[in-house]
Design a binder for these strands. Structure first.
Length: 460
RNA sequence: GUGGUUGUAGCUCAGUUGGUUAGAGCGUCGGUUUGUGGUACCGAAAGUCGUGGGUUCGAGCCCCAUCUUCCACCCCA
């Protein structure tokens, strides 16, 4: 064979079984989104670069796929710019569009652009692929799907409460038990940074703190010190490292750390509200856990921060995340619109369900009955029956090629086997004469000759 | 973006310090079996050893580049 074609790294082809399983997940998620009152929207797969660039931090900019301009884009570059070879200067001149990096920023753009047509609070969901120029690893791809639900135009903490319920509802519907919804609050992180005198180093501080369960207390302290946080400040963090117990007792410890910080106390107040509400409403299968070290998406989250981790024992990064962003639309010129949202990582949820064998057998459902083809007259008669069965909603098909020998028969039976088709119908010369059908059960091997009505009822 | 790792038949993988014609299992195809599949037995086809350079009398094996896989960073769903 000649050189085989290939696809770019970090992308995948999906066979029909995988498509069925993926669609089982997205349909389950969409169904819950609808039940919770969200409306679908879709946005283009690529945006103007200035919509995306600079919204995800320096690291994010690096991971955005940029689209080369059409036409003679190099001719428009001045000799000076060309000679200079400065990416930051040249890139915007040869690339004015970029692939969607997530669903949140395009959504913010959508809200601002269509603000006069939207009823606030606006609840939307969106299930579309996003692209990142990342280096692939397990559960990390360069093209993957996000399933987002967001609300804009309400500051109510009941939204956060509902999103936690929504997470719980989806994972319950997927029969995925033992999922942990971690929650934190940007205001608490700000408060802690304030207390230790590192307000200006909030990001460095939280990035280091985020690594606590991965690299341990000592390394975290080292990293903070290296980032310029004072030893005195780090000492004040000591109670934080020993934080344990349930939601309530952790909150009490945090209160003592944050007693001098107004914003920190505000964060605690918010967390307490959410926790109390969830305790009253109860979750079905997921667990809610306060995790002060959780610090994701700080480039725009301002209040609650969510992250969902797979059940214990499954080696997978987060399978969902989200949070409150008080001023996301501000970057597009629409001030004081608060938003909060969550995201499900389809590709990772897939890997988790696969690892735990949680896909129901029903996702594989395909053709129920295959008619063996014995020749023109028989095939014609078979197609009549096939049409009738199809009109009754029974997945049926006729093998397209005729039997010319016993080998062909074997081939057709094998075909049914390979495709896991549970029934085969034989309409040969005898059946044609008697106007009956030989129905064979491919699992048990049993066979019976019956009329059309019986055939329908047996296959229903 | 940094460091490492992987690639041999359709699939999963062997292949010794560089040495004749690169192997196995599964699958595929044919036969035992011309209206009955799954099991069994017999047989066959199938590989530019990821790709491109280089070293060597000789390269699947060594060197360089590149693509790909997986992993750890960074970051993230």
């Amino acid at each position: 064979m000649a050189q085989k074609p290939s696809i770019p790294k970090g992308t995948r082809d999906f066979n029909s079984e995988t498509v069925a399983k993926r669609s089982y997940i997205t349909e389950t998620i969409k169904q819950q989104f609808k039940v919770y009152g969200f409306q679908p929207i879709e946005t283009p797969s690529f945006e103007n670069s200035d919509t995306l660039i600079g919204k995800y931090g320096e690291e994010g900019d690096r991971l955005i796929f940029k689209i080369l301009n059409s036409g003679e884009y190099l001719k428009k570059i001045s000799d000076a710019d060309y000679q200079e070879r400065l990416e930051s200067k040249l890139t915007p001149k040869i690339s004015e569009k970029a692939l969607r990096y997530d669903l949140t920023v395009p959504f913010a753009r959508y809200v601002v652009q269509h603000q006069n047509e939207i009823e606030f609070p606006f609840k939307r969901y969106q299930v579309q692929p996003v692209w990142r120029a990342d280096r692939p690893q397990k559960g990390r791809f360069r093209e993957f799907y996000q399933c987002d639900a967001d609300v804009v135009g309400s500051r109510s903490l009941f939204q956060e409460v509902e999103f936690i319920q929504l997470y719980d509802a989806v994972f319950t519907a997927l029969n995925l038990k033992g999922v942990t919804i971690k929650i934190n609050n940007r205001k608490i992180l700000s408060g802690i940074a304030e207390v230790i005198g590192a307000q200006d180093k909030l990001i460095d501080f939280t990035v280091a703190l985020d690594k606590l369960d991965k690299i341990g207390e000592e390394k975290v302290k080292e990293e903070m010190l290296a980032k310029g946080i004072s030893q005195a400040g780090i000492d004040k963090l000591q109670p934080l490292f020993g934080l344990s117990g349930n939601f309530g007792s952790q909150i009490e410890s945090l209160k003592s750390i944050l007693e001098s910080s107004e914003i920190g106390l505000k964060g605690i107040e918010e967390l307490e509200f959410i926790n109390t509400a969830i305790a009253t409403l109860q979750l079905k299968t997921a667990g809610l856990q306060l995790d002060v070290t959780l610090a994701r998406g700080l480039n725009y989250y301002t209040g609650a921060i969510f992250e969902v981790s797979a059940p214990e024992g499954v080696n997978m990064g987060s399978i969902g995340g989200g949070g409150r962003y008080d001023d996301l639309t501000g970057i597009f010129g629409l001030k004081d619109i608060s938003g909060v949202g969550i995201s499900f990582g389809l590709d990772r949820i897939y890997l988790v369900l696969e690892e735990l064998s949680l896909f129901p057998d029903s996702v594989k459902e395909n053709t129920k009955v295959l008619f063996i083809n014995f020749g023109e007259a028989e095939a014609m008669e078979s197609l009549k029956a096939v049409s009738t069965l199809r009109s009754k909603g029974i997945n049926a098909e006729l093998y397209p090629d005729w039997v010319t020998s016993g080998k062909q028969m074997k081939k057709q039976m094998n075909y049914a086997n390979k495709r896991d088709i549970p029934f085969v119908v034989l309409v040969g010369e005898e059946e044609l004469k008697s106007n009956r059908f030989a129905l064979k059960n491919m699992t048990s091997g049993e066979q019976e000759t019956i009329n059309l009505d019986d055939l329908i009822s047996k296959l229903k």
